[in-house]
Computed example of a mutant assay.
Amino acid sequence: MDKSSKIYVAGHNGMVGSAIFRNLKSKGFNNIVTRTSSELNLIDQQAVASFFEIEKPEFVFLAAAKVGGILANNTLRADFIYQNIMIQSNVIHQSYKNKVKKLLFLGSTCIYPKLAPQPLREEYLLTGLLEPTNEPYAIAKIAGIKMCDAYREQYGCNFISVMPTNLYGLNDNYDLQNSHVLPALLRKFHEAKMNDEREVTVWGTGSPLREFLHADDMADACVYLMEKYNDQGFVNIGSGQEISIKDLASLIKKIVGYKGIVVFDNSKPDGAPRKVTDTTKLDQLGWKFSIFLEQGIRQVYHDTFNK
């Protein structure tokens, strides 16, 4: 990519897309095309076709998606599979038709089998059953990876895929009904502190192990791979470090300054027992994360709740 290359960031208002947009701007890229969801409905095939025909972007970051936590994934199953398949199919196909030089598709580590060996290596894809609670979303993302590879094989398109681990950062979703665990805990502990509540309830047993990466690190890796990686298959993006939900709750409690007690609701689902990515492929490509978890959460908490 040249600094003047026309770059389309799909989903630029979300946490992932906005982080990529900021990273590109910080590196001097000055010809970035964006559309809000009200300006361009990516589920609408004809609208997407018209946009690509008019704008003719050279590079595409496909960060647009319908996302959510366990509750949203498990209750809005049709929405998650339909909307994500439509969004990515429209953008990938129009990128091919309009001769986009390179596209980067963002998935999620929920694509891996629920009981895949840990840490998660790229070759474990499709080797076992998925976690049932987010299976529709995972199937959509797997379809996106395979679609990029198929367009590469049939048409010679330079379409690559990346699979970020659990992300947090600016513009995250803090809705307690459909957010991911880290932002949900930040909001819960903050509100408990503000309301002087005696206890905070956390879903599940607290035992699952999770890996988290700051969205700014993820964005830096995406821009790096857009410039360096040109192969089929996908690349994990993560820190390779993990923490239990119980320890995460304790860390957030400390950062927020909440003085009450933490209660774990064992009747609620845990999700996969462990989920950490193997970042060997990314390491070999020459990229490493730089924002450590406590530092990153402190910054996000300050920027979001203490403005």
Rank of each mutant, 00 (worst) to 15 (best):
I111Y: 03
I111F: 04
Y112H: 07
K114H: 07
K114I: 01
L115H: 13
A116W: 04
Q118S: 04
Q118F: 05
P119I: 05
L120Y: 01
E123C: 08
E123I: 06
E123Q: 07
Y124K: 02
L125P: 05
L125K: 06
L125G: 03
L126F: 04
L126V: 06
G128S: 09
G128E: 12
L129K: 15
L129C: 08
L129V: 07
E131V: 08
T133C: 09
T133V: 09
E135V: 04
Y137S: 13
I139F: 03
K141C: 10
I142Y: 05
K146T: 09
M147T: 11
M147P: 01
M147C: 12
M147F: 13
C148E: 04
C148S: 14
D149Y: 04
A150F: 11
R152N: 09
R152T: 11
E153V: 09
Q154A: 13
C157I: 05
N158T: 12
N158E: 11
N158C: 10
F159A: 07
S161R: 10
V162K: 00
V162P: 00
P164E: 00
N166F: 07
Y168T: 04
G169S: 04
G169V: 02
N173S: 12
Y174R: 09
Y174K: 12
D175A: 14
D175L: 13
L176F: 02
H180Q: 15
H180N: 11
V181E: 13
L182W: 08
L182H: 10
A184E: 12
A184Y: 02
L185V: 12
L185N: 12
L186T: 06
L186K: 07
K188S: 15
K188I: 13
K188A: 15
F189C: 09
F189R: 11
E191C: 10
E191N: 15
A192G: 09
K193M: 15
M194S: 15
N195M: 12
N195W: 05
D196W: 06
D196Y: 13
D196Q: 15
R198M: 11
R198P: 10
E199L: 14
V200T: 10
T201R: 14
T201I: 15
W203R: 13
W203G: 08
G204Q: 11
T205V: 14
G206D: 14
S207T: 15
E211A: 12
E211N: 11
F212A: 03
F212P: 06
H214Q: 08
A215T: 13
D216F: 03
D217L: 00
M218V: 00
M218T: 01
A219C: 09
A219G: 03
A219L: 06
D220Q: 04
D220F: 01
A221M: 07
C222E: 04
Y224V: 00
L225D: 00
M226V: 07
E227S: 09
E227N: 13
Y229A: 02
N230E: 10
N230S: 14
N230C: 12
N230F: 11
D231V: 01
D231G: 01
G233C: 03
G233D: 02
G233V: 04
F234Y: 13
V235T: 02
V235P: 00
V235R: 00
N236K: 00
I237C: 00
G240I: 03
Q241Y: 05
E242Q: 07
I243W: 02
I243V: 06
S244H: 01
S244N: 04
I245G: 03
K246F: 06
